[in-house]
Each structure stands twice: as C-alpha cells, then as structure tokens.
Write a protein that binds this DNA or RNA. Structure first.
Length: 484
RNA sequence: GCCCCGUUCGUCUAGUGGCCUAGGACACCAGCCUCUCACGUUGGUAACACGAGUUCGAGUCUCGUACGGGGCGCCA
C-alpha cells in the first residue's frame, strides 16, 4: 500500500507571508487534499536574530485568511535543536560525520586560495588545479590532534566521487557532481544545527513524503539528499516550483508593489480570487481558468506544474477578483469589507463613517456596486456619493453637463418624482423613461444630468438605484440643488 | 567566476512527433448591448529565442549559441 501523502509548508518568521510562499502553501495544501493526505506546518525559526513572534502570527493569519488549514499544531524548528544534535551525534558515532576544527579565519583563507587559483587559471587559460570546494583536513585527521580550546563544527562525510541525483517532479532528473559539493556543516561550533540539516531531520520526523517548495531550494535538495542517505532515510518526492517574478521579470520585490499576502488583502482582493490566480501561476489543468476550490483539489497534480518562472500580472488578478466579487452575495462582500476596510488606504475614516450612518445604508446600492467592482476598494469608492453631504462638489465634466437646458430638465423632473407612488427603482425608471419620451429626448440626455446632480460625477451606478439608496428626501434635495 | 534550471502572443498558459494555416484566458483595439461606467456579447491584432542535427515529418527529440532566473555561508 502506498504511504499516505504528507506535505508541509515551512516558512521562516522573518517577515510576512510572501505571495510566493502563499502559492507554495497552496500547492502543498492542494496536493495533500487531492491525495487525502495531511498538510503540516513548520516554523523555521532557527535564525534567532530575525525570527519574531509577530511574524509567526502574521503568517498564520494570512494562511487562515487564504483558508488553507493545516493539520495539528505548527512545529517550531528551534525547539527541536536537541533532536537535531542527537542525530548529528549518531552520524558522528557511525563515522558518517566528523568534527571539523577549522576556524572562520581558516575558511576565509581557503576560500581566498581557491579564488586566487581560479583567477590565475583563467589568466593562464587552463583548468584550475586542486579542490574547488572547501575540503576540511579534519575529514581524515586523527581527532587526537584537535587543537585545544577549539570547539568543532560537525561536518557530514559526503562522498567525494560520483554524483548526487535529485529526481524532481518538476525539474526532472537533476545531477550534481559530488566534487561540487563540500562536506556540509550540520552542527555549528556553537552547537546550533544548520538549516539544511534541521530541515531533513524535521521532514523525516514529521513523516513528510512530498517536499513542494520554491525552486530557490533546488540546489539544497542535493545537499539534503546526502543527509537522507547518510541517515539511511527514505528521500522524499521533490517538487521544486519555479519562482514568481515581478511584471518586469526580476525577482518579486517591494518595488513591484506587493510581496506580502496581507497587502493583497488590504488592496481588496478576495482569498478565493487570490487562490484561483495563484494556482494558475505555474500550474495548469488544460485550458481551465476559473475553477472552484473543489475543482482545484480534484485536479491538482504535481505533473501539471510548469518549469519556467511566471510573472505576476495584476490585471489578471483584478479580472478574477471582479468575477468572484460578482459571484459573492452582498452579505459576504459586506463582511469582507468590514474585515479589510481598516487595512485599506483611508479605510479607517470610511469605516467610521459607515459605522455612524449604519452599514444598512449600503444595501440598496451594494449589488450595483459589486457588479462594477474589481477590488473591494471600489465599493467604498463607488458608495462615496452616498456619504457625501450637500451641496455636492461637482467634477468638471459633471458641471459641464449641467447647462441651462439640463437644469430646466431637472426642475420639471423633480416635479414628476414628487408624484411617485412608491420610491423604488422600477417606478423611478418608469418616470424617467416616460419623461424622456414625452420630451422627445434620448434617455442619456435625462439620465446624465440626473447623475451629475445626484453624485457630482459622470460615472456611477444606474440613477434609479442611486435614488433609492439616497432616499426620497435626499435625492430630491440634490436634484433641487442643481435645478434652475 | 563556478554549478543548477529555464525560454510558445505584452502576460498566464494549452501543446508529450503528424489533430498546429499553434488553442484558451487576461490585457489591448473595433462593433453590439446600454442612462454613464462596468457586466455581457461578436470580431480583431499578437507567439513556438536563434542555429545546427535526428526524422518521411519538430513547437514537441538531441546538441550548440544567446538571453533570463536560481544557488554558491558555521543565513534560512
């Protein structure tokens, strides 16, 4: 029987959840769901300087927001240092690792010598001589010769001949000559286990069967393979996912606008849209673009992952987001908005305003706003006319529309509206249409001045909807403000 | 510099030797719908990096070149 699949996401809490990390987490989550396996979380907090609890919280929050649930409690890597050292001791006892008494100064000197030889070789147009990696003499030296007072680092006794092969589900078969790999340090001289070692021990202990992570770790995979082999453990299935680049093709960075998942929330993107966008970045299932989470789970396979890096395209994300906003219920959007508004630009002010007048004020116009929104930000922006106070400030174009003719139209229209039997959109629309017909004018000649008077703008939801949202009194007052 | 990886429309991608006069989506352009905007809808512009080879036949296989990315720590 096939072992049940165990995947994991292992972020370092040195910042917020990077959008690339979000995709990695999504892929791991999807694959676990797809195979009926488990998705685990491990916090790689061994960098004591940069690891912060606030970052752990931020990452966990982003994962929850994305609705990527993990199995059990997150494992903290730093807390497992004793276990890592124990495995290292075992390797030492078996002769698969050794104490290395090289000092930092020694290493610098050796690297300097290698660089110098390489430079010389280039000049003389010949191949560089001697080892091209750090080769510790302590690999073969008698430990009795150890200098007094120097605490050793522990190095893995890696094979110096042959090759190390990584069978990657995405990259394929990656072969690295062992001469390229030095004896990696697994425990530092201060007793702290190194990343490439701790990762292997943890993944093994957690029972991880599939390591799905960024392609920036592909080189690490060969080193880690050597650790697995030394320990006599099964090597997991590797899948190194190509990185996400910014729109200009360079590594996604601050300059591109947003790297943190929390920033996308603040920009008004829906988790369902972000998931759909992210899953199509580097993975495909035929020509399917829009897919439900259920479909993603059903379809997600490792061999659907592409080999090349993808550029982030905000326009496509926005399109997807608009789609999912339209598919949501007004209640869902209202809830999302309440959640995200405090994080948005000027959102706190808008939220205070809406809290004051009551969120129900939005109800009449929300569906019309959702129809037009690309991000949640567009909702408060589109509802701004509701919160505005008379007399309205007119945009230049709006002022232009309100010429003498238009003002006269508004005046006679106001009288018609005052007779409305009920104040709802169909009735009001009916009045507008009847008036246009009777006056022999196009609808636009009536609706545009109305729009200008109601909003001070030339762009808005349908006027009928807005009049209902504003209420009879306010709507008529705004029309009267602009009427001749 | 060394090692590893990649390269199909502007972008994300389909494509696993003949179904490709290369398909879809976003973006863009034009039309329709229409009270503006948006939605929807119809159509359009637009790509196999380059060069050799294998083959009856190559976007698909091989090699080279160019370009891009990643990695070279007692960081993670």
């Amino acid at each position: 029987m096939q072992k049940p699949v165990v995947t994991r996401f292992a972020p370092s809490p040195t910042g917020t959840l990077h959008i690339g990390g979000a995709r990695t987490a999504l892929f791991n989550w999807l694959y676990a769901k797809h195979t009926g396996g488990r998705f685990l979380l491990r916090i790689e907090d061994t960098d004591r300087e940069r690891s912060k609890q606030e970052h752990v919280d931020a990452i966990l929050n982003s994962l929850r927001w994305l609705e990527l649930d993990w199995h059990g409690e997150p494992l903290f890597q730093f807390a497992r240092a004793d276990r890592h050292r124990e495995v290292a001791r075992q390797l030492l006892a078996e002769g698969k690792a050794y104490n290395c008494y090289l000092t930092t100064a020694d290493l610098e000197a050796m690297r300097g010598a290698i660089d110098a030889e390489r430079a010389l070789a280039r000049e003389e147009k010949r191949a560089p001589r001697g080892p091209q990696t750090i080769q510790s003499p302590w690999r073969d030296r008698d430990p009795k010769e150890a200098p007094a007072g120097v605490t050793p680092a522990i190095r893995l006794r890696a094979p110096r001949e042959g090759e190390t092969i990584v069978e990657d589900k995405v990259a394929g078969r990656v072969v690295v000559q062992n001469t390229q790999l030095d004896d990696m340090i697994i425990v530092r001289s201060d007793g702290a286990p190194t990343y490439n070692f701790a990762v292997v021990v943890d993944d093994h202990d957690m029972g991880v069967t599939h390591v799905i992570r960024g392609a920036d770790h592909l080189n690490n995979a060969s080193r880690q393979t050597q650790v697995y082999l030394a320990c006599g453990w099964d090597v997991p299935v590797w899948a190194h996912v190509p990185l996400i680049h910014g729109p200009d093709g360079a590594k996604l960075s601050k300059r591109h606008g947003a790297q943190g998942t929390d920033e996308y929330r603040a920009m008004g993107y829906l988790p369902v849209a972000l998931r759909n966008y992210l899953v199509r970045l580097g993975w495909s299932h035929g020509n399917d673009e829009i897919m439900s989470t259920e479909q993603m789970v059903e379809w997600f396979e490792l061999d659907g992952i592409g080999k090349s890096a993808a550029r982030f395209d905000f326009a496509k994300l926005a399109d997807l987001n608009g789609h999912y906003i339209r598919k949501s219920s007004p209640a869902q959007i209202k809830a999302r908005l309440q959640e995200a508004l405090p994080e948005m630009e000027n959102g706190a002010v808008t939220k205070a305003e809406l809290d004051r007048v009551g969120w129900d004020t939005l109800d009449a116009i929300l569906p019309a706003l959702m129809e037009r929104a690309k991000t949640l930000k567009d909702i408060p922006a589109g509802a701004a006319f509701l919160l505005a106070t008379r007399p309205l400030k007119l945009e230049e174009k709006a002022a232009k529309i309100l010429d003498t003719d238009a003002k006269a139209t508004l005046k006679s229209l106001a009288a018609e509206f005052a007779t409305a039997a009920t104040w709802d959109a169909p009735t009001l629309d009916g009045i507008i249409r009847a008036y246009a017909e009777q006056a022999g004018k196009k609808l636009g000649q009536i609706a545009q001045p109305l729009r200008a008077a109601l909003t001070g703008s030339t762009v808005s939801p349908p006027v009928g909807d807005m009049m209902v949202a504003l209420g009879c009194e306010e709507a008529l007052a705004r029309i009267a403000d602009q009427a001749a």
